[in-house]
């Protein structure tokens, strides 16, 4: 464990807690893409399969439970909660996310570290995580300005993966033959997807206005 990875995990944790807090306190999910939340639930379900079989550390198990629990409860809130669901903007959140699930799955069948169920699902979860934010970014473009909590959520989500890239660089130089192209390329693509959002996010911080995304 190194500082970059710990910072990345805590940033990731903060992003889901910010989102849960927002939905739980103001009982609204305005501006949040259910599709992205469903994709994240799939990412965690397919990546944390080994939760019950291999024990790595208390930290690892605890974090996996928190991520699984929070992502599924966010999906439940938006789909089922009688008040929250009313604020879900389903005719704006129209990204056909099955069109990214299938290609990711096909890609995982082609490119993986080993052709076993666990490895293929693990690669699938990495590819899917890289593009899971797309419905949310599309929704932000459509609804133009977004409230601060959603902005913070997306920012923290992007920052976590950027910190992970620093972690991979650190591990590459400190651990012999630590080479994992699948993880590295997926993580890089994921972070690049956030790049333009980061640009507008910092712009809005500078001129202290609401976050205005260009049409």
């Amino acid at each position: 464990m190194n500082i970059f990875r710990l910072a990345g995990d805590l940033t990731h944790l903060a992003s889901v807690l910010v989102l849960l807090l927002k939905i739980h306190t103001i009982k609204s999910c305005a501006g949040i893409s259910l599709k992205t939340q469903e994709l994240y639930a799939i990412v965690f379900a397919t990546r944390y399969l080994d939760l019950f079989t291999t024990y790595i550390s208390l930290y690892n198990t605890l974090m996996k439970l928190i991520f699984l629990g929070s992502s599924f409860s966010i999906v439940w809130y938006i789909r089922k909660h009688k008040i929250v669901r009313r604020s879900y903007d389903k005719d704006q959140d129209t990204f056909r996310h099955y069109f990214i699930v299938l290609p990711c799955f096909v890609l995982a069948l082609i490119i993986h570290e080993k052709f076993t169920v666990r490895e293929v699902l693990w690669a699938f979860s990495l590819y899917l995580e890289a593009v899971a934010i797309l419905p949310q970014l599309v929704l932000l473009q459509r609804t133009r300005n977004i409230d601060n909590l959603t902005g913070q959520y997306v920012f923290l989500l992007g920052a976590y993966r950027a910190l992970y890239i620093l972690n991979w660089i650190y591990r590459y130089f400190t651990e012999p033959h630590f080479v994992h192209w699948i993880t590295w390329i997926s993580g890089l693509v994921q972070t690049l997807l956030y790049a333009d959002f980061f640009y507008y996010y910092f712009q809005s911080m500078k001129n202290n206005g609401k976050l205005q995304l260009p049409a």
Partner: peptide, 10 residues
């Protein structure tokens, strides 16, 4: 056992 170290990441 190949402790695939990348798998200990979240």
């Amino acid at each position: 056992v190949d402790t695939d170290s990348i798998k200990d990441e979240l």
